[in-house]
Nucleic acid binder design. Structure first.
Lengths: 170, 170
DNA sequence: TGTTGACGCGTTACAGTATAACATATATAC
DNA sequence: GTATATATGTTATACTGTAACGCGTCAACA
């Protein structure tokens, strides 16, 4: 049976940000997977790092480094920028968090370990950020680059617009 | 005859950043087109704005707002950030300049008035930025968004890698 | 068991990016 | 030629990100 990129492997519920889902469950699943992956990679999921991931997993929004820092400081961790930036850097490097450049912000990855390269759909009304499967998009981008002899190492694809719920409300 | 998105309409030379071309000519062409388009739109291409566009047209690199500002200040314009940011904002709004979010920088649009939505290819070795025709990429992205009910208003597609010349040198 | 070395955390200090708000000047419409 | 809108210049400040140092902790190992 083919794996559905947008469904929770545990309960089958869709974990797409815009879909109604048991978020506490989906967040817990992702956190557990991240912990396991870190262990496998010999990387240390320390208290600060875990807490940052948890904070980003609270909802499907992207948070600025300083928002994260404020939360950390309130909980007794350090209150200087490097504390947040270092944890975020670690999480991004290991694929547990995505950086949303358009927002100068960070969002938890909902598919850790899947080596995906999603497109980000940012709702300008409710601020939710969803990861959309973007394999065809990457393929087209790769083709465009190849046509001019350019070799891609990393790329970011971000779209700003309205999610289904907010569109319905308007 | 079909229009070649990457060729200069005046002389047929390719204007892609990575291709060898008569850049002075290509820059002059783009500037002239931008001036005409601004006039048509009833927008005022003032000295600062024109100068900012000229600066960005000097080569195919992206410049930070403060780089632009430094140039402006040296030429007798104001030397405070808003001077640069306002001119850049105007140029971006009118499609004469693109914002490269990955670099926190701005690059002259080489196809003003074409209502295109390019993918940006950023060479990490020589810093050149090229606009690649990205219609298929947009189509794929649009499809991915539509699949989850998301409606895109604006999007940015940026790739980091190596241009043909730098790849050859390595 | 004591040392060593790598790593993570906290802090200071600073660099780079961006905008709000107000005053002045310039252009355009009538 | 005055009124109005637009553009520029300036001050001040907010937001985002990093370099560098020192301390503590933990694991490897003599």
């Amino acid at each position: 049976m083919p794996h559905d990129h947008n469904a929770c492997p545990d309960c089958g519920l869709p974990d797409l940000a815009f879909a109604v889902h048991d978020h506490a469950h989906c967040a817990a699943q992702v956190l557990a997977r991240a912990e396991a992956l870190a262990q496998d990679a010999g990387a240390r999921m320390t208290p600060v790092r875990r807490r940052v991931l948890e904070i980003l997993l609270e909802n499907h929004k992207a948070l600025g480094a300083y928002d994260v820092l404020q939360r950390l400081a309130a909980e007794g961790f350090g209150n200087q920028p490097p504390v947040a930036y270092r944890a975020l850097e670690f999480l991004v490097e290991h694929g547990f968090v995505h950086r949303i450049r358009r927002l100068n912000a960070f969002a938890a990855c909902m598919h850790p370990g899947e080596d995906h390269a999603p497109a980000f759909l940012i709702c300008k009304t409710c601020d939710l950020v969803a990861e959309a499967p973007a394999a065809p998009v990457r393929t087209a981008l790769e083709a465009a680059a190849q046509a001019v002899g350019f070799s891609i190492e990393r790329s970011n694809i971000e779209a700003l617009g309205q999610c289904p719920a907010c569109r319905g409300a308007a």
